[in-house]
Simulated assay, not measured.
Amino acid sequence: MPTTRTASPTTTDAPLSPRRRQLLDAGLHVVADEGLRGLTHRAVDRRAGLPQGSCSAYLRTRKALVSALTEYVAGTLAADVDALAVDLQQCDGAAERAIELTLRLFQRWVDERELLLAKLELSLEASRDPDLAALLAAWRARLVDVVDGIMAARDTEHSTERAEALVSSFDGILFAALLKPARGRAAFLARSLELLMRSLAGPGDA
């Protein structure tokens, strides 16, 4: 199992106890390996190496478990995006550096594929569950704001609609990369991101 992240765990930035974090990290890996149907309290306990009943002591119902996991995944992604935004602001419009930093993050997400797979599973479930959709919408709005802010800082033509289109493109690139053979993923990400980030930088910065 990959090392547990230390990023902000929830969309509300509330701190997690070590045990709760352990359970949610185990839940993330269960969903990545078995899909959302495989997410049960017992499966989480087994994956975490904890006694049966540990997960239900913290998250009594399956809905509570799924909701907490959605917050955990969205919060981890949001913290990564916030960190990237800080780094991008220091690029001073240098497109090559912006591509390099974004590629580094996306490559890590693809290498640690459990996070992206869990997000995909939860996103599908959110299409049928308004409560989950609201949790994921909060993270997506945060990412759209970051992208829009970067374009504004560079005096690039920007709008919420354009930022949303770019975010959707990022999503598509990431999931397409997961379907590529492992040896071709880095090259695919680099080519795709260069095209998008050139557009983000604007013609004057390309």
Rank of each mutant, 00 (worst) to 15 (best):
M1Q: 04
T4H: 00
T6G: 13
T10N: 12
T10C: 09
T11Q: 11
A14D: 14
L16Q: 12
L24H: 06
D25K: 02
G27T: 05
G27V: 02
R37S: 11
R47L: 10
P51V: 09
Q52W: 05
C55F: 03
C55Q: 10
S56A: 12
A57M: 09
Y58L: 10
Y58N: 10
L59Y: 15
T61Q: 05
K63F: 05
L65P: 08
V66P: 07
S67L: 12
A68V: 02
E71H: 13
V73F: 02
A74N: 05
T76H: 09
A78E: 11
A79I: 06
D80Y: 08
D80V: 06
D82E: 15
D82M: 08
A85F: 09
D92I: 00
R97A: 13
A98W: 03
E100L: 15
L101F: 13
T102V: 13
T102S: 15
L105N: 03
L105M: 11
F106S: 03
W109P: 00
V110M: 00
E112W: 02
R113P: 00
E114C: 10
L116T: 01
A118P: 05
A118G: 06
K119P: 00
E121D: 14
S123T: 14
E125I: 02
S127T: 14
D129I: 04
A133C: 06
A134D: 12
L136G: 12
A137C: 04
W139A: 12
W139E: 14
R140G: 00
R140Q: 11
L143V: 10
L143D: 06
V146N: 07
D155G: 13
T156M: 09
T156A: 12
H158S: 09
H158F: 00
H158L: 00
L166Q: 14
V167S: 05
S168D: 11
S168H: 07
F170Y: 12
A177T: 08
L178G: 07
L179F: 04
K180D: 06
P181E: 09
R183E: 15
G184K: 11
A186P: 02
A186V: 11
F188G: 04
L189P: 03
L189K: 03
A190L: 06
E194R: 15
L195C: 05
L195D: 07
M197I: 14
L200Y: 03
L200A: 13
A201T: 05
D205N: 14
A206W: 13
